[in-house]
Design a protein around this nucleic acid. Sequence first.
DNA 1: GTCGCTGCAAACGCTTTGCATCCTT
DNA 2: AAGGATGCAAAGCGTTTGCAGCGAC
Lengths: 142, 142
Amino acid sequence: MQNWEQVLSGSGHRVTGSRRAVAEVLADAEGPLSHQTVLERGRALHPELGLVTVYRTLDLFAELGLTRKVHREDGCSNCMPSSAGHHHALLCTKCGAAVEFPCTDDIAELVAKVESTTDFEVHSHLLQLSGVCSECKAKVGP
Amino acid sequence: MQNWEQVLSGSGHRVTGSRRAVAEVLADAEGPLSHQTVLERGRALHPELGLVTVYRTLDLFAELGLTRKVHREDGCSNCMPSSAGHHHALLCTKCGAAVEFPCTDDIAELVAKVESTTDFEVHSHLLQLSGVCSECKAKVGP
DNA sequence: GTCGCTGCAAACGCTTTGCATCCTT
DNA sequence: AAGGATGCAAAGCGTTTGCAGCGAC
């Protein structure tokens, strides 16, 4: 996410104030952000930012692999910055925090089993875990 | 899905023509269905069926565990009938077919690893596989 | 100077709500 | 008879599109 400017210009797109604002908001995000939240935070950095541009910029970033889309109960189209490699998201249901974890061999094993059982050829998988983070676990105590 | 009438009346709800139509459409579904598709097919069985009722009925069925919600690229709120036990969905990207497969120990292992790595307490997981089913694989060949 | 990018406003589509009526219980 | 269920119409939201002006290259 720190080399987004190179990714953008390298793929023939322009580096603008709006995109810089969105990129910074995402870089500082502690979890998945809705378009509306990106807009509100982005306006602190670039007051003339519009919601339409947030949609277009987030689409573009996702297309370039700079962000990852996250599904939540309350909506399908939240975004979080993505790091290299194949990762999955783990969300805290209490505070909304999200972390990534790398894809493990366990998934590969499961996919192999399912392929032999169903005769499908599996191309991709969507995995998300939900739970309570360490901080929220502590808060619940006596 | 065949005992939906008992589940409904057992939980204090009524068995009506609209709900029967929706239930039959779901029972015959070869894959995940959108609300609109449920409406169209349901009207063949119960012509006065309305879209609003489809929404309410699908919500109710999901609440009672009779159906499972499925996430797809083109939308978040499709439904398919659900069977007993913890299952996940496998979707064919060519023909839209969907099958279920049971949750395996591989997931439990992965969850254990992630919990020790992140210090989260994982409560639930969302897993969906996408690929090509055996029939569509055959079609592609020479 | 060119052409992509932006923001506003309007259009759009999906989902929910209000309400009078119907029908299961 | 009572109250949940239904369907229509309208409201409500989030998302996309059209267009004229602006700004990166």
